[in-house]
Amino acid sequence: MTDKTLNVALMRGGHTAEREVSLNSGAAVQQALETLGHVVFPVDDIAVLKALHEKVDVVFNLLHGADGEDGQLAAWLNQEGYAYTGCDHLAGALSWYKDKSKVLVAAEGVSTPNAQCISDVNDLAMTTDGPWIVKPAGEGSSVGLFKANNSAELLAAVEESLRLSKLILIEDYIEGVECTVGIVGGEVLPVVSIVPDGELYDYQAKYESKNTQYHCPPNFDRAWQKALQQDAIKVFNALSLSGWGRVDFIVDDQGRRWFLEANTTPGMTKTSLLPKAAAVHGWDFTTLVAKILNSAFVGGCDE
C-alpha cells in the first residue's frame, strides 16, 4: 500500500439514474482519502479532469452506471495515460452488458438463470411459464427491475423496461437468497446475504428502505459460502476483471448458486454492501478505500 501523498481525481456524480448514489459514495470516499493524507479533486465532468491533467496522480472512479462502468471511461483514461481504479475497458463492457457476461460466466461452469435479451417487444418469445425478472441489459442499482408472474405482467414489464433501456434482459426468476461477494486487490471478502424489504431487492429496498436486512456472514452453510467465493473468482477471471468489484448471486433452497451480475464500481457509502463485508474481513472504511486506491497501481484479482 502506497504511503505517498497523492493527488486523487475523484470521479463521482455523472448523468445516469445512479447520480445520487454516486455522489453519496463520493462524499464518503473523499473523507477517507483525506484522512489518509491525499489531496482530493472532486470531478463531475471530463472537461474538469482534462484541466487537472498535470496535477493528477490517479483517478478514483466512482461513477456508477454507464458514465463510469460500461468501459468507455476506462478506455479514455488508458488512452490519456492515467492510473485509475477499477477494471479496463474490455472488462467494463463485458460486465456492463448482462447478456454478454452471462454467456462468458456460464462457459466457466457457473450457473446463471436462463434469459432472453431483446430490444423490441415483438421479439418476446419466452419458453417457460414464469415467473420472470425483467431488467435493463446495461444498468445498475436495480434501476428498472421488475418481477412478472404471468404473461400479462410480463408484457407490461417488458414495455416499461424498454422505455428505460434500448436493450433488456428477461430472466427466469430464481427463488432464493440474494448474496454478494466482493473482491479487492485479489482478496476475496466474506459473503453478504440480503433480506429485502419486499419481494425484490430493487432500488427502493436498496436505498430507501430502513427494513432491508443484511447478514455477514450469512445464516447458511459455510461450504455454500466458500463455494460462492470460489464462484466469484471464476466470474472475475471469466470477465477479465481487476482492481475491485462485487459479484451478485442467488442461492436457492437446495444450495445451488446462480450468477446474476458483476458490479465493477460498487456503492461505497459507509452502509453499502462492500464496506459491510470489508468490516467483517477486518478492514475499516478507510482501509478499504486505501486498498482500492492501491489496486490502481498493482493490478487486481490474480487468483
Rank of each mutant, 00 (worst) to 15 (best):
L104Y: 08
D231E: 10
L73N: 03
A27P: 00
V289P: 03
V192C: 06
I233V: 13
G81E: 05
A115W: 15
G185R: 02
H89N: 12
A27L: 13
K98H: 10
M268C: 13
V29T: 03
S295M: 14
V289H: 03
V188K: 02
N263E: 15
T287E: 14
H215W: 01
K226Q: 10
L33Y: 02
G182P: 10
Y97A: 01
T16R: 05
K234A: 08
A107F: 11
D45Q: 05
T287G: 12
P131R: 10
V177C: 15
S295N: 12
L63F: 13
T287V: 15
N24L: 14
L94N: 10
L124E: 06
R256I: 10
T128Y: 13
E199R: 09
G130M: 11
A137L: 04
Q225S: 08
P218I: 06
P275F: 03
E69D: 03
T112E: 13
F236L: 01
R12M: 14
A152L: 15
D202P: 00
L162H: 09
I174N: 10
E153K: 00
A232G: 04
A232Y: 05
H64L: 02
V103P: 10
G186N: 07
D252F: 07
L73V: 08
P275D: 06
Q204H: 12
N24C: 11
A277T: 05
N149L: 15
Y201M: 11
T5A: 08
E208M: 11
K276T: 10
G267T: 13
A205L: 11
P190L: 01
G182I: 05
A238Y: 09
G109R: 02
V40R: 09
D252C: 07
V58D: 00
S22Y: 04
G71I: 10
N294W: 11
K4M: 02
A227T: 08
S242N: 03
H215F: 09
R12G: 00
A290T: 07
A262W: 15
D99G: 11
P136V: 06
A107V: 09
L104H: 04
L62R: 03
C179P: 00
N114C: 12
G81S: 12
E69I: 07
G182W: 08
K147Q: 14
C301R: 13
T265C: 13
H281F: 12
L124A: 04
V247M: 13
A227F: 01
E199Y: 04
L63D: 01
F249T: 07
N61R: 08
P136N: 07
W244M: 07
L273Y: 09
F146Q: 06
K135A: 02
Q30M: 15
L90D: 06
S142F: 09
D231T: 01
K206H: 03
H89A: 14
D44S: 13
P113H: 14
A51S: 14
G71Y: 13
R257K: 12
H38G: 01
H38Y: 02
G243M: 06
G92N: 09
Q230I: 07
M11E: 01
G26F: 06
S242D: 02
K276L: 14
G81Y: 12
S22M: 04
L273S: 08
L62P: 00
T287W: 06
F297C: 11
A75K: 09
T127F: 09
K291N: 05
T286F: 08
L145P: 00
